[in-house]
């Protein structure tokens, strides 16, 4: 009997049954001896052959690393992060290479990170190294963050999006309405995080209307909209989030999320089409919104209030002033 099954798969089971006919190995497609066993009221069986499991140092049932109980890809990533050199488990792409690798003896031939985790001494060594790496990273963390780079391809700048801007509530303030417009959404923020943040503010997760779309996030345009089921929930949301005054004396809301603050204004006419469909439209809209955010965040002393007010009143003119005011940008986007 030779097999490699991790303890968490076996969970104390000592009786294995050999299947009468075996099966095809999921990795090398050669026939192998299958064992099955019952552990924690579930029947497990080996899916890959012993040789493949030795080559990759993985469990024959769950295919996680035998030493660390993590997937192969993750193990290789951790090792390459610690060692500074690329560690990958190269898998065969075609039939011939599958055979070729399958014929190598798994005791001596290790793929990728298996050469480390299959050997106790080098595993201990790597663990020490991980400890060192973590210590280096976790040095008294000064949490200063650089301003995020704003992607602004030039090709987007000549697209006309005045028809979108007309429909967007850029002049609105934070007031009670059933739906809201969100902007300054970092493209790395997933939709569920926004949903969770809103749920936290209104203290219930059933704020969405079950018969219509309640959350629309356009990551490309870095904006989105939410709609509440009832106006009570909406007013709870308005009261729950932090409000701030822009230089133009408009009250806007801020929803704190991860490292960024999403700006919130009322949007009574919630409308998906206003957020643009084409790539270029979305990118341009993101630029316009970015400028709006910068303007809202600059203090009154930094720039002439006259120019600002005219911009708020006529969002279309903003496009004309893109080039001239490029250098004026608040340093801290996130406040």
């Amino acid at each position: 009997m030779d097999f490699a099954i991790c303890e968490s798969c076996l969970s104390g089971q000592t009786r294995l049954t050999r299947a009468p006919n075996g099966a095809e190995c999921k990795i090398c497609t050669l026939p192998f001896t299958v064992y099955h066993f019952k552990a924690s009221s579930k029947i497990n069986r080996t899916l890959i052959c012993h040789n493949c499991s030795k080559q990759r140092n993985i469990c024959q049932c769950c295919m996680l690393d035998l030493q660390w109980q993590i997937p192969v890809e993750l193990r290789d990533r951790v090792l390459s992060a610690v060692q500074g050199s690329q560690v990958t488990t190269q898998e065969a792409q075609n039939e011939m290479m599958k055979r070729f690798i399958a014929l190598k003896n798994g005791d001596s031939y290790k793929l990728g990170g298996a050469s480390i985790t299959s050997d106790a001494a080098s595993t201990a060594q790597i663990l020490e190294r991980i400890r060192g790496t973590l210590a280096q990273i976790e040095l008294p963390g000064d949490k200063s963050k650089a301003a995020k780079p704003i992607v602004a391809p030039n090709s987007a700048s000549e697209v006309d999006i005045s028809h979108l801007i007309k429909k967007l509530p850029l002049k609105n303030s934070l007031e009670t309405a059933q739906s809201f417009f969100l902007y300054n959404i970092d493209s790395s923020i997933p939709e569920w995080a926004i949903v969770e943040a809103v749920s936290e503010v209104v203290e219930t997760s059933s704020w969405q209307d079950p018969v219509s779309t309640s959350v629309v996030i356009n990551h490309m345009a870095r904006c989105g909209g939410i709609r509440f089921k009832t106006s009570e929930l909406a007013s709870k949301f308005v009261n729950g989030i932090e409000a701030f005054q822009t230089p133009a004396n408009v009250t806007k809301g801020k929803l704190a999320l991860q490292n960024s603050k999403i700006h919130v204004v009322a949007w009574p006419h919630f409308h998906r089409a206003a957020m643009g469909n084409k790539n270029s439209e979305c990118l341009k809209l993101a630029q316009v919104l970015e400028k709006l955010v910068q303007k809202d965040l600059t203090t009154a002393g930094e720039s002439g209030s006259k120019a600002r007010q005219s911009k708020v009143a006529k969002p279309n003119k903003k496009r004309a002033s893109v080039k001239t005011k490029k250098n004026r940008r608040a340093i801290d986007i996130e406040l």
Partner: peptide, 12 residues
């Protein structure tokens, strides 16, 4: 990267 950092911590 975040995931592998978490895993490193967990391993330690």
């Amino acid at each position: 990267d975040q995931e592998s950092l978490n895993v490193m911590l967990e391993l330690i």
